[in-house]
Simulated assay, not measured.
Amino acid sequence: MRQQLALVTLVVRDYDEAIAFYVGKLGFELTTDRPMGTKRWVVVTPPGSLAGLLLAQAANEGQAARIGDPTGGRVAFFLHTDDFDRDHARMTAAGVRFLEAPRREPYGTVAVFEDLYGVRWDLLQPKLASSSPEDV
């Protein structure tokens, strides 16, 4: 049996501002943007990735309350790269806010950044394709 994660939902304030950030600043690809009645089906995908983010505009107060805090302040997403220095420089130049300087860890090079809503992400270049902090 083979399975893979395809989409993860991220609640956003506005479709277009989220697209501008993820595509314009992070370099993701807008893979789907189609109307669905009063909503849109919006998917952004990191280059070369099979998995993507479903950007879901908050439809009520309860959903709006989750914007920017899907994990209680922990890092929510781990963006792997094959060239940390290239992507860190490009993202910094695009105005992405990194919360720390890049650091070298036994599992790879990493730095935490925030998206436009304050959701924390790791930009990570693993030392080995399968390595993770649990492997060391």
Rank of each mutant, 00 (worst) to 15 (best):
D14H: 08
Y15D: 12
Y15K: 09
Y15S: 02
D16Q: 15
D16T: 11
D16V: 07
E17A: 06
E17R: 15
E17F: 00
A18F: 03
A18H: 05
Y22H: 07
Y22P: 07
V23A: 00
G24C: 11
G24F: 08
G24K: 14
L26C: 09
L26K: 07
L26W: 03
G27D: 06
G27F: 09
F28T: 04
E29W: 03
T31H: 09
T31V: 14
T31F: 01
D33F: 03
D33W: 04
R34E: 13
R34W: 05
G37L: 08
G37H: 10
T38E: 14
T38F: 04
K39H: 09
R40Y: 10
W41T: 10
V42L: 07
V42F: 00
V42P: 07
V42N: 06
V44Y: 02
T45F: 05
P47C: 01
P47Y: 03
S49W: 06
S49P: 05
S49N: 11
L50Q: 15
A51E: 12
G52C: 12
G52E: 13
L53S: 01
L53T: 05
L53G: 01
L54F: 12
L54W: 12
L54S: 08
L55K: 10
L55T: 08
Q57L: 03
A58M: 09
G62C: 04
G62P: 10
G62N: 15
Q63P: 08
Q63D: 11
A64Q: 15
A65Y: 11
A65K: 15
R66E: 13
R66M: 14
R66W: 05
I67N: 04
G68P: 12
P70V: 13
G72R: 15
G72Y: 11
G72N: 13
G72D: 13
G73R: 10
G73W: 09
V75M: 06
V75D: 04
A76L: 06
F77E: 07
F78V: 14
L79T: 14
L79F: 11
D82H: 13
D82W: 08
F84N: 03
F84Q: 04
F84T: 02
D85L: 06
R86F: 03
D87H: 14
H88C: 02
A89C: 02
R90Q: 13
R90E: 10
R90K: 15
T92R: 15
T92G: 11
A93K: 15
A94D: 10
V96N: 06
R97A: 08
F98G: 01
F98I: 07
L99I: 09
L99M: 12
E100I: 08
A101K: 15
P102L: 06
R104H: 05
Y107I: 02
G108H: 05
T109Y: 01
V110M: 04
A111H: 03
V112P: 01
V112G: 00
D115H: 07
D115M: 06
Y117M: 02
V119E: 13
V119M: 09
R120A: 05
D122V: 04
D122N: 14
L124A: 05
Q125N: 06
Q125L: 02
Q125G: 01
P126G: 01
K127R: 15
K127F: 00
L128A: 07
S130G: 08
S130V: 10
S130E: 15
